[in-house]
């Protein structure tokens, strides 16, 4: 264990993974309750376009992906608000567009080497110190927003029309939530990989919802499940030399199973 923690790349990976898992868990609670949980999946597919563009232009994938994913998330918002199509359909359209463009760029560039695979499935080796700092900033922004607008977020999540009649700018909150989620998705693809980012946004909140009786408990448990799964997942990935994304998500699934068993056979928390 000590040997494991002595490696610089492991330290960076653990720090970045912890921060990004906590950020994704907090955002995921709102996304799951607003039935927008698949937005992570859609955004992750769009990430492929950013990564492909970065590999073609020899720039950092994170910096190239952030604007691409942000623009796509705004595209989803516009499709829902202006064209008035369902949220899941809008996510599906943008997701398919992102994946197609990414594959097209990859094909036109004559394919890529193993770099692309590491982005698809996650590789803790690729996390830089600057990215770990960005993860910290992201979590800080989320915590500050939650502190300042906790009641607005829960109200808008619980009953959007009523929240509007309280003067809450629900549209701005939704846009903010989706844009912060987009950045979290970009920062998370180094840790769990493009294919598995959405799991980090969905599984910890769903597991937390099964065992909690208050909204604060949901947020707390979701962060716990997300962070512990990253720690254990990275350790297993190091031990068995497997992609970190897969091991992290499998640990998350164990938490989900345990939560389900607890909610079924444990103390009835809602009584």
């Amino acid at each position: 264990m000590i040997e494991f923690l002595s490696y610089g790349f492991v330290q960076k990976g653990l720090v970045a993974g912890t921060l990004v898992a906590a950020a994704c868990a907090l955002l995921g609670v709102f996304l799951v309750l607003k039935r927008l949980s698949l937005i992570g999946d859609g955004m992750s597919h769009v990430c492929l376009t950013g990564v492909a563009l970065a590999l073609v232009t020899s720039t950092q994938p994170v910096y190239m992906s952030v604007p691409v994913v942000l623009l796509s998330s705004l595209g989803i918002m516009k499709l829902v608000q202006k064209v008035r199509i369902y949220g899941d359909a809008a996510i599906g359209i943008v997701s398919a567009a992102g994946l197609s463009v990414g594959l097209l760029i990859t094909a036109l560039a004559g394919g890529f080497n193993t770099d692309l695979l590491s982005y698809l499935f996650g590789s803790i080796l690729t996390v830089s110190a600057a990215e770990a700092v960005l993860c910290g900033l992201l979590l800080l922004v989320i915590l500050v927003l939650l502190r300042l607008f906790y009641r607005d977020f829960t109200s808008a999540c619980f009953d959007e029309p009523f929240a509007k009649t309280r003067g809450i700018n629900v549209s701005l909150l939704n846009t903010g939530l989706i844009m912060v989620t987009s950045i979290a998705v970009v920062l998370a693809f180094k840790v769990v990989g493009i294919f598995l980012i959405s799991a980090l946004l969905i599984i910890p909140p769903v597991a937390a919802l099964l065992v909690s009786r208050t909204f604060r408990q949901v947020l707390g448990w979701a962060v716990c499940f997300g962070v512990i799964s990253v720690w254990v997942g990275i350790y297993i990935s190091f031990l068995w030399d497997i992609p970190s994304g897969a091991s992290i998500i499998l640990i998350n699934l164990l938490f989900l199973s345990g939560s389900y068993v607890f909610s079924k056979f444990g103390k009835k928390s809602h009584d």
């Binding site: 009641r151 829960t154 619980f158 009953d159 009523f162 919802l209 208050t214 909204f215 408990q217 949901v218």
Partner: peptide, 24 residues
């Protein structure tokens, strides 16, 4: 408003949502 299961807010928290003075 709640058609989905397990939105973990108490009745008291729901009533509190009707007040607009504080956001935090």
């Amino acid at each position: 408003p709640v058609s989905q299961a397990r939105f973990p807010v108490s009745a008291q928290e729901v009533v509190l949502m009707g007040l607009t003075d504080h956001h935090g």
